[in-house]
């Protein structure tokens, strides 16, 4: 690992260690937060008792569905919107302010329409993820150097060939950003909905534990979410760096 990587690891471990000491020594009261080591132990117990698996499968399944829908629809929509510059100019202010509107307020509306199933939650996760993908697809397409498109015209390529062989690879780094954000936003949408109304899933279990002053379960579940999302994010980050490395060389 590089020097930077070691420093980063030291900082992360140091912060966790500090938190541990603060909690153990009582500076942070156990009613506020239990020590990280206890969270891990509680999470382990929860897993062993078999109470972890059902909400986890539920939540992760919904997130995965929302994520896949976001990426596929977001990319296609981005391509279409980019091809219609007038529509796009009109749409831009709406896209820019999109994330300020808390879409999960529509969750009850969706429940009335679709019933008390997983579908409303998946739709909320999708609504959150898809726009990140659209915005980044547009961003990437904007930055395809015109000279590369001219090369496409010189080779008399069709619109579809240009999209697949020039626009897509050229925009790839931005698409990757879109994919990473789609993961993050799908999580936010799904978990927020679970907090609000749903009767199952990790978000619901956290809210339930909170209301019952069950700090141990609550922190175990929070730890689970945070580590899962971070691990996922790190995996994507490493993959992305690998892809970008050869393209950017030493520059």
């Amino acid at each position: 690992m590089s020097k930077v990587g070691w420093i980063r690891l030291a900082i992360v471990l140091g912060s966790v260690g500090l938190l541990e000491i603060l909690c153990q020594s009582g500076v942070i009261r156990p009613l506020t937060m239990i020590p990280p080591s206890r969270m891990a132990v509680e999470l382990w117990k929860l897993g062993a008792s078999g109470k972890l698996a059902p909400p986890v499968t539920k939540t992760l399944g919904n997130v995965a569905a929302a994520f896949i829908l976001s990426v596929v629809f977001g990319f296609i929509a981005g391509l279409l919107i980019h091809a219609l510059p007038r529509f796009r100019r009109a749409l831009d202010p709406l896209l820019a302010s999109y994330y300020a509107v808390p879409f999960f307020v529509f969750y009850p509306v969706l429940i009335v329409i679709f019933g008390m199933s997983d579908l409303p939650i998946i739709i909320i996760g999708f609504l959150f993820g898809v726009v990140a993908m659209i915005i980044n697809t547009l961003n990437g397409l904007d930055r395809v150097p015109t000279v590369l498109l001219k090369v496409g015209r010189m080779n008399r390529m069709s619109a579809l060939q240009t999209a697949a062989l020039i626009k897509l690879p050229s925009a790839a780094p931005y698409l990757f950003t879109g994919v990473k954000l789609a993961v993050a936003y799908s999580f936010i949408g799904v978990i927020a909905s679970e907090f609000i109304l749903s009767g199952s899933g990790i978000g619901y279990d956290i809210a339930y534990a909170y209301n019952n002053f069950d700090n141990r379960t609550m922190y175990a579940l929070m730890l689970f979410i945070l580590t899962t999302v971070t691990a996922l994010n790190m995996a994507l980050y490493i993959w992305e760096q690998r892809m970008l490395k050869r393209r950017q060389g030493g520059r």
Binding site: V4, I11, M33, A184, I191, A192, I206, M218, V229, M234
Partner: peptide, 23 residues
């Protein structure tokens, strides 16, 4: 050093933390 940490924090569903903030 900080950038990947920030990116990881950005991706966290911070709503999960609301009980902590309340406490």
């Amino acid at each position: 050093v900080a950038e990947p940490i920030l990116v990881a924090l950005y991706a966290l569903p911070k709503i999960t933390l609301y009980p902590l903030i309340l406490l």
